[in-house]
Each structure stands twice: as structure tokens, then as C-alpha cells.
Amino acid sequence: MTTKLGYAVALVLLLIAPFFLYPVLLMKFLCFALFACAFNLILGFGGLLSFGHAAFFGGAAYITGHAIKVWGLPTELGLLAGAAAAGIMGLAAGMLAIRRQGIYFAMITLALAQMAYFLFISAPFTGGENGLQGVPRGTLLGMVDLQDNMAMYYFTLAIFLAAFWLIARTVHSPFGQVLRAIRDNEPRAVSLGYDVDRYKLQAFVLSATLAGLAGALKTVVFQLASLTDAHWHMSGEVVLMTLLGGVGTIAGPAVGAGIIVALQNLLASGPLSAWVPVVLGVIFVICVLSFRRGVIGELRAFIQKSF
């Protein structure tokens, strides 16, 4: 009940927000919210800490930029191409990493993401240090001009909502039930006949694909794909957003992304601008020490306690 109400309020806020706040900032938030929710699918629901999700985000950003700018694909197809490429990267990385547990899984994903990063630095299609600039936003179905920020905002919102719905559905699906069982007691899941590696791999590929969609969308919004998107800082930032908002909750990572994007934006113009990473670091430490379940996790526990 409270959850439904919460979603309804959030939806209304998202619909009216661009009349009060700068749409590009809101779109940045939506892209990172999608990225964090996708990441949470593997961390929160698959129980695996990937430290290389920037490779999917950044990889898709480049593919989409290239597909739209150089191949001249329509925007919708460009986005799909980016997401699909991230899914394929996820499949390859997942097949190498999925058998590992805990810290080894994190290390392999980090190593693979670093490999991808060096590839992006040297490959010709990424534009190296300059990145891919001036990617045209194009039109939606050849009719709506996405150069208009309002149109672009609602397009971004629609994609975000669809992906968010898919993630929520995945968590509450037959597949999601098996994932829960695996996270709860893996040896028991094996003894009931589940090939747990295949389930984890599917979760990883889904997570990578949707992280890619987030990166692809980001390219279209900012008309830019750059090395920043694929840097390991980005992998760390998405971990931070997810933990801050509430790992293993459906909406938490989006809230965490909102907090981080808002802070970055507020601090960037003030006297603390050089200290943004430090401030984020301090917040992270406070969060880990005092409310481990994250914003949404703590809120949920509070509501459960008081009713």
C-alpha cells in the first residue's frame, strides 16, 4: 500500500519536474538512476559485486554514439544497438567471471573493465581523449524533434519507466524467485536441481544490457560519449549510489542516484567544487557506518516497525 502510494507520488513528480527544474539535469538523473537500478539487479538480487559495470555503461555509450553519428542510424535503433552491445559484452565477461565468488568476482570484473577501458583509449571509433562529440539527438519515429529538451526529457522518462518496470518484474518473476533462493542458500538451490551459474549468468547479462541502455541514453542526452563513462570511477560511483539508496530494494538505487547527482550539481558551483569526491566519500562512510540498509532500506524497516 505505502509502496504503491510512493510510486504514484514519484511518477507525478517526474511528470511535472521539468517545469521546475532544468531538464538536462533531470535527464542526467534518470540515466544514472537507470544505471544504478540495473547494477542492483546483479548486486542486490544476484548477490554478486561487479566492479566493472562502467565498461557496459561506457561501451554502450560509444556504440550508440558511433551508430547514430557515423552510421546514421535513427536514435531508437542507436539506443538498441548500444544496449545489445553491452549485453554481448556482459555475456562474454559473465562466462569468464560467474563461477567466482565474492572478492574474486569483483576482481575479474574490474580487470575486464580495465581491459575494455584501454581498448576504448586506443580504438579509433571512440575518438580517444576527445571522445565522440556532437552526436545528433535525431527525431523520435521521424516525427518529434529530440533537440527540444522537453521532448527529450519525456522520451528519456518513458525509457526509464519501461526499464524500471522490467527490473521490478524480473525481481518478481519465476526467475526472480530462483535468484532469491540462490542468494539465500546456494548449495540448497543446487541440490534442488538448479544450475545456479546459468541463473547468475542470465541476471548478469540482463544487468549489463540495462546498464548499457543507461549509457546509450546518456550519449543521446549529452550528445557525447567519453572515457569518463568507462572509467573505473564510474564503476565505483554506481556502487555508491546503490548502497546509499538501499541495495536489494527496487527503488533504492534510483534514490541513491538522485542524491549523488543532486549533490554533484550543488557542490560543483560552490566553494567546495574541488572537494566533491571528498564530500561523496564522507557521505559514503557515514552511510556505511550508520544506516547500512540505505535510504529506502531504512525507510522500509521504519514503516514495518511502526505498523
Binding site: H172, S173, P174, Q177, L206
Partner: peptide, 12 residues
């Protein structure tokens, strides 16, 4: 249907 992530868990 254990790999079906698009299906509702109500189907169970």
C-alpha cells in the same frame, strides 16, 4: 518457466 524474467510470479 524458471528462466522467464518477464512473467509475473503470480504464474507460480
Amino acid at each position: 518457466t524458471s528462466f522467464h524474467f518477464w512473467r509475473s510470479e503470480k504464474s507460480l
